[in-house]
């Protein structure tokens, strides 16, 4: 698959240029910005890699957006920009062949929890807002992307947490490969909210890196004449029952599989973008070096953009595309149970 366009909404700002500036100057990320404006309750950490000034109304107008949750807003804005960057029409005859595949952890945790809260604290348990009901469903963001941009092709939402983006990439690969769609907007979104911040705090995923929020979306099309851009050469996911050391083995298996599928010489892999939070964690990197037989450059997106959960892999790919690298790079991810995945991407061609 060819990446014909992409965009990202990250703590660095809206768009690919903002992301590239931070990639060029990683120290500018620091520990993030003060995030208390994004919550009306105390947060576990005062700062995070969020974009507090993100205002969906300024981007899309008031009409049809007042009920959006932040995940949906991030996803819709990012998909709009990605489609623009690809130069593809946002309307017209072929919109039935343009689809969407977005990764998620559980949609908007805040939407679900707030809706439940209303059923508990209101005088009557059914005094909930019907207009917000769609936000409690995990496919809300992808559905709104389709509505807003008029995309009638395959519309999918893939849950995966840390694996979500690779799951979406793998799904899009299948959809295009099987001929169900010609173009797939593929990415993931995750919002900054107290619900996520506290969940991450309780499970320890933000012990070594601040929480982040982001959406990153890539416009994918089948390789063919006149279709130019970076290429997703292969994607593989798997599961290691029991997790732990078995997950490292399984990740190595995925790496070997993508190299074999793409018929790429391991020596050509210039860098690996892992889901590790900091340089002391080498569980993914070790698995990669075992398979490659050497240690390529390792790039960590999380110190720059925070723990973005489902969007982490998408942000990592955006980072890869922003750098001046050429050749093949690997993306890897490992979940909390035993899920693993890898993708091989040719950049800068």
């Amino acid at each position: 698959m060819v990446i014909t366009g992409w965009s990202a909404v990250t703590a660095a700002g809206i768009g690919a240029e903002a992301l590239a500036r931070r990639v060029a100057d990683p120290a500018s990320a620091g520990r993030g910005v003060v995030v208390d404006g994004l919550s009306d309750v105390p947060l576990p950490a005062p700062t995070g890699h969020a974009l507090p000034g993100f205002d969906v109304r300024a981007e899309l107008g008031r009409k049809g957006t007042s009920w959006y949750d932040r995940t949906t807003a991030l996803a819709v804005v990012c998909c709009r920009d990605a489609l623009r960057s690809a130069g593809a029409p946002a309307g017209g005859d072929d919109t039935a062949r343009i689809g969407v595949a977005l990764g998620t952890t559980l949609g908007s945790h805040k939407s679900v929890s707030d809706y439940t809260r209303e059923t508990l604290v209101q005088e009557r348990p059914y005094w909930v807002n019907p207009a917000l009901f769609p936000t409690t469903v995990m496919n809300c963001a992808a559905g709104q992307v389709a509505i807003r941009l008029g995309l009638r092709g395959v519309n999918a939402t893939l849950a995966g947490g840390p694996l979500a983006f690779l799951n979406a990439l793998r799904y899009a690969d299948t959809v295009i490969g099987r001929g169900y769609a010609d173009v797939m907007l593929t990415g993931a979104a995750e919002e900054y909210a107290p619900h996520r911040a506290w969940a991450a705090h309780h499970t320890g995923t933000t012990a070594n890196v601040p929480l982040g929020e982001a959406a990153a979306v890539f416009v994918l099309a089948a390789a063919g004449e006149g279709v130019t851009g970076p290429r997703v050469l292969a994607v593989a996911t798997g599961y290691a029952p029991g997790g732990g050391a078995a997950a490292g083995q399984a990740l190595g298996g995925c790496v070997a599989r993508v190299l074999r599928r793409a018929d790429v010489d391991p020596a050509g892999v210039s860098a690996v973008f892992t889901g590790e939070a900091d340089s002391r964690d080498t569980r993914e990197f070790d698995a990669v070096t075992r398979v490659l037989g050497r240690a390529p450059e390792r790039v960590l997106a999380k110190p720059m953009f925070g723990e973005c959960d489902a969007a982490s892999g998408a942000v990592a790919l955006a980072v890869a595309l922003s750098r001046a690298d050429t050749g093949q790079v690997l993306l890897t991810a490992v979940g909390a149970d035993g899920a693993v995945g890898a993708a091989l991407v040719e950049v800068g061609a």
Partner: peptide
């Protein structure tokens, strides 16, 4: 993941969240 874990499956473990 619960299915993969229960049956010891090592292939893809995908949850599709299309309502």
């Amino acid at each position: 993941n619960a299915v993969s874990e229960e049956l010891g499956l090592r292939g893809e473990s995908l949850t599709v969240a299309t309502a």
